[in-house]
Every structure is written in C-alpha cells, then in structure tokens.
Nucleic acid binder design. Structure first.
Lengths: 208, 208
DNA sequence: GTCTATAAGGCGATAGAC
DNA sequence: GTCTATCGCCTTATAGAC
C-alpha cells in the first residue's frame, strides 16, 4: 500500500518534508490543469511560499515534473505488484489480471495525483523527458507482457490473440478510466472486475 | 468520408480558406503540444502570418480551440455514422460495433488533428468550454448507448453487463489507441476488429 | 530555507497604418 | 486582410538580503 515513510521533523531541517509537500501540490495541479497550465507561482502559493523559493528545492520546473512522473509510474508498478503477490502461486491468469487491474486503478484513482499526472501529461512533454519516462513505463508494462504470455503458454488464453495489441488495449481502457470514474456507485475493485470481465469473457450471449 | 468542401479562391476574398488553414494548423499544434503549450505566434508562423493578424479571423484563442473541439467531435460522429449506415439493416450488434470502432479510429488516427485535440486537451480546458463540448460529446455517445441497449434487448448481449461501464471502457480503449498506434503493421480496420473482438468474444480459451 | 527584487523574455490581445 | 507596434501582464529563473 506504500504509505509515505514517516520522517521526524527536526528543528534543524525539515527540508525533506517541504520538498515532499511541494511535490504533492505540484502533482495535484499538474494533473488537474496540465504541466503547461500550471505556473510555479500557483504551486508556491499552495504551499505558502514565494515562487523563487522553490528553487532551493528544485533546479527547474522540468526537474519537478520528471520526479512526479517517476514517482507516479513507480506507484502504479508497486501497487499492482502488491495486489498480485498476495495471490496463491499459480493462480489463474484471469485472477492475476483482475488483481493487476485493481492495483492499477487503485494507484490511478485513489492516490492518484502522481500517477494521473504521468498519464495525462506524457504526450506533451519535451523529448528528453519522454525518453527517461518510457524506460520505467516499459518496465511496468513488462509485468503485463509476462502474465499474458504465460496465460497463452499454459492454454488459458486462446490462440490467435495478438498479445501486444491486447495489452495496449487493456492498459488504455484502464488509463482512460481516470477521465470518467467517480467514487460512489462502484468501488475500484468492482470496476476492475467488470473491465477484466469484459476482456476475458466477452459480452456476447453464447446461449443463443 | 467528408473531404473538405472545395471553395473557389476569388481575388476578392479568400477569407474562408485562410480561416480553414489557421484552424488546420491550430488543430495540429494543439494536438501535438497541447493548448497551453501552443502560443499563437507558432500558429501564425506556420501559416506565414503575424500573431496579431489571427484576430481578424478569431476573437480569441479560446474561440479557436472551441471550434477545433467541435469539429473534432463532429468528425468522429460523422465518420462513425457513415461506417455504420452502409451495413445492412438489422445487422448483428457485433458488426455494428466493429463498424463504429473502425469509424472512430479512422477519424482519430487518419484525419485526426481535430479529433485528437478534443481527446487530449479536454481535461485541461476551462469549465465554460468543457460544458459546451460535453453537449456534443454526449450526443455522440448516445449512438453507442442505443446500439448497446438494442443488443441487450434482442439477446445478443448477455444479461448482467453494466452497459454504461462497458461503453465507457470501450470508448476509453479506442481513445487511448491514439497514444500507441503507428501505421504499418496493422490497418485501422484490423485494430478495430481486434479490439471489438476482445470485448465481444473475450480472450479466454473456452476449449479447456 | 525563505524572502524581496528583478532580470529577460513570452504571452494574449488591441490600435491604427497600409 | 495583413502589417507594425505596443500594452499590460505573466512566466521561469537568478542574486543577494535576512
């Protein structure tokens, strides 16, 4: 679940806390208004600082957003792994995918400022940042690659499925959930179960 | 297919052409770099104008992007309708969904600057624009609502499926295709067929 | 660690010449 | 219809006081 590590607040320095506060606010605003739509002044205001003071903690706005991206993707990666690793060894692929989808949505929807920033703003980032982010994103996607190819190997997934297109389609559907999900009617677990249900079982009525 | 209507270029006024050129460039840049990441100067440069001259054709940057959004969603709507209406009456729901997905992807991926702007930038727009756009977007989504509820009614879709969540999941998957599809290996028709195949038939191996 | 002050340039938008 | 010129404001980032 990865709660933020507790740090003692010494009178000598609370720099780590402040840095964390800034990143939290930045992630929230970047997610809501976009990177280019969020001036440093707004971030500073929200942590009761002047814009210039941010430069004690960060070298540039780009460094800030890169850190938000990294933590965001790592958050998804870790949450998904935690959800999956509590399953019994050799669990059916369907259960693994439901657990993974639940973790993915949990990271995205419930503790989601960092991860949603990484989903929403990636396309508009300058190339050097994109390349760095793609490395860790690809590491995360490899988890899905492995689960799916194992499912195909052991016969749980039918042959003739393009696993690459499938993976991108599932992750796309999960990521877009960010744009419409509102807490209330359904829990995140329920959404994940439904969505993987569509993909695994289909919606066709086979009784006819 | 909705090619742009041909206009004669009179020596008296080619204002409609210029206006269209500006919108085309704006859509392209908004889609690639985001609304807030695209200065009017860049749009003007690309049409060999000075930034101030754009105001002869548009009242504001916001008016420009609103127009791009509107045309983008209408483009998806129209392309989807064209793909579906060539089907035989009473075609199976699966065929309708494949045709609709093909049209959706076609609008998004092949003539996509307007429609991809509307997908990528919606979340970061100010509230008044969002509300206006949601009206036409909802009209488009109603097409899917109708096809799905008809499929449920006539027994092609199995009972117990939450059609609302399903619709949002499918459209989410289609919209996210924008972020990973590259022409070459597969055509847009093939991607649509595969994606609806996942959702309709599932990927589970039922022979086991 | 945070402040004030400011540099240096970019932004959307307007006015008036042509 | 497009230009030049400019307004007023906002932006990221830096320098030095406290």
């Amino acid at each position: 679940m990865e709660g933020r590590p507790i740090r003692k607040k010494t009178s000598l320095t609370d720099s780590k806390n402040t840095r964390q506060d800034i990143l939290d606010i930045a992630a929230k605003l970047f997610s809501q208004r976009g990177y280019n739509g969020t001036p440093l002044r707004d971030i500073a205001d929200a942590v009761n600082m002047k814009a210039g003071s941010l430069y004690y903690h960060f070298d540039s706005k780009e460094q800030m957003v890169l850190e938000v991206f990294t933590l965001g993707i790592e958050s998804i990666h870790n949450t998904v792994l935690e959800r999956v690793k509590v399953l019994a060894k050799n669990s059916p692929t369907r259960s693994i995918l439901v657990a993974a989808a639940t973790g993915h949505l949990e990271a995205l929807l419930e503790k989601g400022d960092y991860s949603s920033t990484s989903i929403r703003n990636f396309g508009q980032m300058p190339e050097p940042i994109k390349s760095k982010v793609m490395v860790i994103r690809d590491k995360y996607e490899s988890l899905w690659r492995d689960w799916l190819s194992e499912g195909l190997r052991n016969g749980e997934i039918k042959e003739g499925i393009d696993l690459s297109i499938f993976r991108l389609t599932v992750l796309g559907a999960l990521n877009r959930t960010l744009e419409w999900y509102r807490p209330g009617k359904h829990s995140v677990e329920q959404i994940a179960e439904m969505q993987i249900g569509f993909f695994w079982d289909g919606i066709a009525n086979k009784k006819v």
